[in-house]
């Protein structure tokens, strides 16, 4: 075989040739878009509070509305464009969680409504729920043991 490098050396060599992500630009975009999405959440929160909703209802309704926004933007085929620009700025907010539920569900609609939409809906969101809920149970048990 025509080869002058070990795998390790080749990996380093390929790494050097590959163009790098523009981290400064990407991070700036993520900061601005992520920040703005959170400001939208804050506007909704402040509005609900001013209408006299209590803490719990406000937080639930804000989450619900943000998710709805993420879903609608995904359905209208614009959330992927936003993601292309903003990266983590639109992945990390809860709107991105909504996007991760709707996008595979839409994509796999061609495989039917049970094993397509119903099952594929959770390919990305499923792990989030698994690890989020499991973490809360573990932390809850530790909290219980420490305090009771």
């Amino acid at each position: 075989m025509y080869n002058i490098m070990t795998k390790k050396e080749y990996e380093k060599y390929a790494e050097k040739i590959a163009p790098k992500s523009n981290i400064v630009r990407n991070t700036a975009r993520a900061f601005v878009v992520g920040g703005l999405i959170c400001v939208v959440g804050q506007i909704i929160t402040n509005f609900l509070k001013s209408k006299g909703y209590d803490m719990d209802d406000t937080s639930n309704l804000t989450a619900l509305i943000m998710i709805l926004i993420g879903i609608i933007f995904t359905g209208l085929n614009v959330y992927d464009e936003l993601g292309r620009f903003a990266g983590a700025g639109s992945i990390v907010p809860i709107t991105g969680f909504a996007n991760s539920i709707v996008s595979p569900a839409m994509e796999f609609k061609s495989e039917g409504f049970i094993m397509g939409v119903g099952a594929k809906m959770f390919v990305i969101a499923g792990p989030v729920l698994v690890y989020g809920i499991s973490a809360s149970v573990v932390i809850g048990i530790i909290y219980y043991l420490l305090n009771f």
Partner: peptide, 17 residues
């Protein structure tokens, strides 16, 4: 994309490579 990567509407960035 559907088979190898992500759903089309998922908001991700493609790395430069």
């Amino acid at each position: 994309e559907k088979q190898f990567r992500f759903p089309l509407e998922l908001g991700t960035q493609r790395p430069p490579t």
